[in-house]
Design a protein around this nucleic acid. Structure first.
Lengths: 94, 94
DNA sequence: ATAAACAAGTTTACAAAATAAACCAAATAT
DNA sequence: ATATTTGGTTTATTTTGTAAACTTGTTTAT
């Protein structure tokens, strides 16, 4: 029997964000926006959701004078991602 | 760069339906309902969407006196599923 | 024979989610 | 000085998912 997929991760953009964060130390807002191709508004909202779930941390600082938002995956995020991958594999039959 | 995921397949229930159909000749409504755990209403709606997209065929007949709805995946459905799997693999890093 | 309960779906109304447009504040370019 | 760009956030709209309510017919109990 197929197990439920974590609805927070089963979203194209949020999965994309997590996918980028899982293999780097950190990534900033601009990097994520560029590499996901998302609009800033959409990205902002989805980052918020991931943060509220405790899957990522969001740190606001400055790059010189320009604001910079840095995201990092948490252990809980990493584990949730791992389990999501495990579960969806059964759907994909791989 | 991550490619877009087919939104018709990136849905837990529809992906579950396709996942079941991809490896059997056919499956009827009751089988799909039981094995996905979906409500009949939800299943009906999602089957409709897959059919309208040309990913499955839906045949209405009878099992004795009781109505029976039989679903089959089409070549287009199989191909869409294949491509979806290929694309989401990059998100999952597998 | 009639009513109650059940089976197989469909329709529709509602809730949740995704998305982009509009907005804001500060920095840089003209 | 002012127009444009950068780095976002807020909010309004659209899209989507979902289940409750309904329909049509069948079986079972009385």
């Amino acid at each position: 029997m197929l197990k439920e997929l974590n609805p927070l991760l089963h979203s194209e953009l949020r999965l994309g964000i997590m996918s980028m964060l899982v293999s780097v130390d950190s990534a900033d807002f601009v990097y994520l926006r560029t590499n996901t191709g998302a609009t800033a508004g959409n990205l902002s909202v989805q980052i918020d959701k991931l943060q509220k779930a405790g899957y990522i941390t969001v740190e606001k600082g400055f790059n010189g004078k320009m604001p910079r938002t840095t995201c990092r995956i948490t252990d809980a995020g990493r584990e949730a991602f791992r389990e999501y991958v495990e579960r969806i594999k059964e759907y994909l039959k791989i």
